[in-house]
Design a protein around this nucleic acid. Structure first.
Lengths: 113, 113
DNA sequence: CGGTATCCTTGACGATACTG
DNA sequence: CAGTATCGTCAAGGATACCG
């Protein structure tokens, strides 16, 4: 494998790693929902049209495992569960912004303007 | 729907549009492969470990429909087919870079360094 | 060389019901 | 309130063979 090919493979791997973490239909919406102030399971759920409990639950776990969000049990009675972005999770802004900008541009382009 | 909610939905839509175009397992590798100099079907194929003809064929069509690449029939004998990024496709750099950078950071983070 | 055709597997996602 | 459990669907992707 040449040097160029090696750098090429590393690029691909890095991007596919990112895709694994934030890819799929729901991860970014969930992150944005929490980012915009929703803390509790049902609040996040309501903010995202059409997501089901089952899927939300799984995605939250995935995001927690990847250190992007933190789940906290607030010790009131009855207990509340709160989700929050970690500092690390806030770093996603760095990629969310470009993705959003590109999407807006693309829509115009494809719709023929 | 409040104003904040509306902006939130627009953000999500823009990002999901982007994901639709470049999401999935192979689109970015294919784009990078062409970007790095591969023009012909079998060259692109060889540069990307494990991709099958069927999948590559479908993805190339998808990318062409979204105006990111251009397919040209070169009139030699026998004819050659050449793929190239469009100017518009080159604009993907704007999102590929952040995705790559974030992926590298994330790998370190998760592997515990 | 540049693909199609067929068939198959898997995993993401959905619907609905239920629970501590 | 914050999820699980169960069952079902569907599309992305894979394996292999073949074609003009």
């Amino acid at each position: 494998m040449t040097n160029g090919e090696k750098r090429f493979q590393e690029k691909i791997n890095a991007i596919q790693d990112t895709m694994f973490v934030i890819g799929g239909k729901w991860k970014i919406p969930i992150i944005l929902s929490i980012y915009s102030g929703n803390k509790r399971f049902n609040d996040i759920s309501k903010a995202i049209p059409k997501i089901t409990n089952r899927v939300l639950s799984k995605e939250l776990k995935h995001l927690e495992e990847n250190l992007l969000i933190k789940r906290t049990v607030v010790d009131t009675y009855p207990v509340r569960i709160e989700y929050a972005l970690t500092d690390y999770g806030l770093g996603l802004e760095e990629i969310a912004k470009p993705l959003e900008n590109w999407g807006r541009k693309h829509k115009k382009k494809i719709s023929g303007k």
